[in-house]
């Protein structure tokens, strides 16, 4: 068992707003296993994107990290706490786009409209390594071919508006992977795409991960996508982690009432014509708002429940 690449402990984030302090994250605890895909699922406002932004140290005022640690253990160098770095620490420049990189939801806004595709991918290389422009351009071409873009020479001199949504997302993935990061964070990378293109991009991410063996954090609200891409699942709600386990544990035998509700609310799970379950109807009287600490169950998963509510066969 290798050590996790990221260990997140008691992470807390607050946003100062006109109406007071909003606690975007409260005592978030989970590990990101090395070389595997961890999905963070939750609805809007659950804190999944804030968690990703913390790992990249992209939380900006009025938000700030108010507590906890993010221990990052690169394979080749000393482990350090990302949350504790000064804003001007040079390690942050290495980190962003170098050790850890990110693929965003909307590929059109993630790309510059006024720079050509080749230049944007090459820039990612030039930011992090001492290579000539020609070398960077050649490596960018290689990476673009790798993510399935054909007719490279011509396409590299084209601009994002000349590409379809799926092609742009391939470019963003190439940019994210070109420095061979240890951790790739994908924040809803397929949400804006058609289902057919989503299937292509999911297959691409999965194949690249199999090949490059980097650790992937995949943020999504779509449980179908989770089932297809993830090895591990972290379920978040209102800034807290409710359940952590393998993809089969969480999706096939959920323990937390909220996870059960989330699964039952998907159309396609019940027969057409039947009413869809809403989370409120599945959760019923169970308390999902009190922050109970995570308990480790006998099958290895963790769940935020009062001890009395843990099913007998899974008692630690």
């Amino acid at each position: 068992m290798t050590a996790p690449v990221l260990e997140i402990r008691d992470l807390a984030v607050e946003f100062k707003t006109d109406t007071g302090l909003t606690r975007a994250l409260r005592n978030v605890n989970f590990d990101v296993p090395r070389g595997e895909v961890t999905a963070i699922v939750g609805e809007s406002g659950s804190g999944k994107s804030v968690t990703a932004n913390c790992i990249m140290r992209l939380i900006q005022p009025p938000g700030r990290i108010t507590g906890g640690s993010i221990r990052f253990a690169p394979t080749a160098s000393q482990a350090f706490d990302i949350a504790a770095l000064e804003d001007k620490d040079e390690r942050l420049l290495d980190l962003r786009g170098g050790h850890i990189s990110m693929v965003f939801q909307e590929p059109m806004t993630a790309l510059s409209p006024v720079h050509n595709i080749g230049g944007q991918v090459a820039e990612a290389i030039l930011c992090h390594r001492e290579v000539s422009k020609e070398q960077a351009w050649a490596e960018a071409a290689q990476m673009l071919a790798h993510v399935g873009i054909g007719d490279i020479e011509r396409r590299m001199t084209m601009y994002p508006f000349e590409f379809s949504g799926g092609m742009r997302q391939r470019v963003v993935i190439a940019m994210a992977l070109v420095c061979n990061p240890e951790v790739l964070i994908c924040d809803e990378p397929t949400t804006a795409l058609d289902v057919t293109i989503q299937a292509e991009i999911l297959t691409l991410i999965r194949n690249l991960q199999d090949e490059l063996k980097n650790s992937v954090i995949f943020i999504t609200h779509d449980l179908g996508v989770v089932a297809q891409i993830a090895d591990h699942v972290v379920v978040m709600y209102q800034g807290r982690v409710l359940e952590i386990g393998t993809v089969r544990q969480v999706l096939k035998q959920p323990v937390h009432p909220y996870t059960k509700g989330l699964l039952k609310a998907i159309p396609g799970v019940v027969d057409p014509g039947e009413r869809l379950a809403t989370i409120a109807s599945v959760v019923g009287d169970a308390d999902i708002t009190t922050p109970f600490p995570l308990i480790k169950l006998s099958d290895g998963r963790q769940v935020s429940l009062p001890r009395g509510h843990v099913p007998a066969e899974l008692k630690p």
């Binding site: 289902v195 989503q198 299937a199 292509e200 179908g224 089932a227 297809q228 089969r248 999706l251 096939k252």
Partner: peptide, 18 residues
Amino acid sequence: KLLLSAIPSPDPDVPLRP
């Protein structure tokens, strides 16, 4: 058929084969 094959199933044991 293409559209239907692209729907990701929420069951991890039903692999996506677009």
